[in-house]
Design a protein around this nucleic acid. Sequence first.
DNA 1: TACATTTGCTAACGGTGTTAGGAAATTATA
DNA 2: TATAATTTCCTAACACCGTTAGCAAATGTA
Lengths: 176, 176
Amino acid sequence: MVKDEGWQSLSIRKIADAIEYSVPVIYDHFENKEAILMEIGKEGFKSLAKKMQQAKAKSTDPAGQLRVMADAYWHFAQKNKEYYQLMFGLGMPCCDVEKNLPEKMTVRSLFMDSINELIAKHQTPNANLCLKYHTLCSILHGLISIRMLSNSDASDTLNKLVLDDAINGFIKNLES
Amino acid sequence: MVKDEGWQSLSIRKIADAIEYSVPVIYDHFENKEAILMEIGKEGFKSLAKKMQQAKAKSTDPAGQLRVMADAYWHFAQKNKEYYQLMFGLGMPCCDVEKNLPEKMTVRSLFMDSINELIAKHQTPNANLCLKYHTLCSILHGLISIRMLSNSDASDTLNKLVLDDAINGFIKNLES
DNA sequence: TACATTTGCTAACGGTGTTAGGAAATTATA
DNA sequence: TATAATTTCCTAACACCGTTAGCAAATGTA
């Protein structure tokens, strides 16, 4: 049901219909809609943790473990898109529907030009521009969006450190 | 208005109230609610692009430019939280409200233990465990969430490459 | 003045989360 | 077994939502 129409169209009434009960019985089991979503989200985290544990068991050295765990995380998100959306608050209507937004291209170019210049400067021919751009975007957006949903007001200095660390790592990789 | 109660509580009727017109006049100017959000999102991208251009002008070498642009991006998201949420589809109700979800801690430990081991193995005392964990999470989550909102079905192999590239860079940084 | 167009409204439709209050069925008690 | 207590479940409503049909008033035009 969610897979067909997304979380936005999941209503208490539709749930009641599906389980062939009336609406108020649902409120006998859950305080409100958010509690239902929360419960499903919990299931998601449970499943993710399991997959990652299984993955980690496949490797012994820490670097290898990190790789297989990242793989497991990735595959979980891919195979359980709807769960992942719920777990991390994704899925609000947003302006990405409009792909060719000119200002988006501006941001893209600003980043890409500098990356390209850096690649040329240090003659790192193995570095793929497009790949590196996406990596940078992921680091930035990931850091910000995670910070936003766990609105940690206090640890904002830590977050800036994480940003600097990640960007430094990104640049260092481009230079070698 | 959005800043006080979030995007979820922004309704056409409230907008109509605020501008002291009736509801249907809004539909004379916008096709639907999504179009309104889209327009606001556009403004956001415009503003972000501007900030990044201004930042880039402050530096000449590409590495420095990347650093100041990342900073600008970060500060934009921080100062314009609501815009950023709209621009990247964040803000759905999710289970992060419940901070101490045990399965979340499991995932955290799985990652952290391996990172810690890797740090110990290569004796990189400058590496801060907590910092590195957050960096890894950001990379993973950023990559996945960006992939999700620009649902690029075709370029899934590229995305796997980006993931591998980013994780490799992360591990390489931990080892040196 | 008479017509045409724009402008804005009221009222409705079907949907949403949520809750009050009351039947019916079950269980416990005398 | 008959009555009381409790659980189970539903109908109906409230207040809100996005969206639209249809109409009145104001404005511009001939």
